[in-house]
């Protein structure tokens, strides 16, 4: 692709990024497939988690090939880690886990995830906001995983979250954007926020749709990891995200209720009955 028609760069907490594709690292069949998928995605941000060690778990920690290859990839490419607080149900848990993540991964970036419902894995807006307020004060760069609720997002943004990550659909569901109206509203009402659709995407077309709405980036995991060929699916998503962003920047035509002729024929060519 010609460089001059490539989509523009964007920034997250002052860091300039070219790729609008953030990739999760869970559920891949092998470290090699994960590495190929990150490379094909062109991801400059990859998510990572923390887990309580098992008793006598030194071997488990030392022998995690997935983590080794992620760290190696990041060191080689300059990609950044985005640790998450998966598994947390309260602000207090999330704050503790965030501090641990900052030390372990040497980054203030944090995907804040506080779930409030076990069935939908829907984020808890109150606990998420409480945690975000504390973490922002403590110098974290918070990427809150949240629903598409406008007021929740406004409160998080007011608390200092420059980036917001509303879901497209419940985690791992692959349903795509279940409420495009809400996402479109977020874009219109929060023009200064960096908006990333996180979770629920299943197909590249879902990612393209999010980008066409004016979202700054997309974060996904399962749609790539669970594909028959994850590395190729990562490439497919990368192209869809690029296409969607280009379309947004180029300006998608206004939707018409009725047909509008495109060929300017100026009436019928013949008047033959």
């Amino acid at each position: 692709m010609s460089a001059n028609i490539g989509s523009s760069v964007w920034r997250a907490y002052g860091v300039e990024l070219a790729s609008r594709f953030l990739l999760g690292t869970a559920g891949y069949p092998s470290p090699q497939v994960l590495c190929e998928s990150i490379a094909n995605a062109g991801a400059e941000v990859v998510t990572i988690g923390l887990k309580r060690s098992l008793a006598g778990g030194a071997a488990d920690i030392g022998g995690n090939d997935f983590i080794a290859i992620i760290r190696e990839y990041c060191a080689r490419s300059g990609a950044r880690l985005l640790p998450n607080t998966a598994g947390c149900r309260t602000a207090r848990e999330a704050i503790t886990l965030a501090c641990m993540a900052r030390e372990l991964f040497d980054t203030p970036w944090l995907k804040l995830e506080v779930v409030g419902d076990e069935y939908t894995l829907q984020p808890d807006p109150w606990e998420t906001l409480a945690a975000a307020e504390t973490l922002i004060r403590d110098g974290f760069s918070v990427f809150p995983y949240c629903t598409d609720d406008l007021v929740t997002c406004q409160r998080l943004h007011d608390a200092g979250c420059e980036v917001l990550m509303p879901w497209g659909a419940p985690i791992g569901s692959g349903q795509g954007l279940i409420n495009p109206f809400a996402l479109k509203t977020l874009r219109e009402r929060l023009p200064d926020a960096v908006l990333i659709v996180d979770a629920g995407l299943g197909a590249p077309s879902h990612a393209a749709q999010a980008m066409e709405l004016g979202f700054d980036a997309v974060l996904l995991n399962s749609a790539v990891a669970q594909a028959r060929e994850p590395a190729r699916m990562a490439a497919a998503f990368a192209r869809a995200i690029e296409a969607g962003r280009l379309a947004f920047e180029a300006g998608v035509m206004a939707r018409q209720e009725m047909a509008v002729a495109s060929t300017p024929v100026g009436g019928r060519p013949f008047l033959i009955d």
Binding site: L34, T47, L50, I61, I67
Partner: peptide, 24 residues
Amino acid sequence: RNERRRVVVQPGDDIATLHAIVGG
């Protein structure tokens, strides 16, 4: 990390260690 040598555990304490894993 730099506080671990100063934190003396007490009876009944719950000490946890966490390590990196893959994540979404």
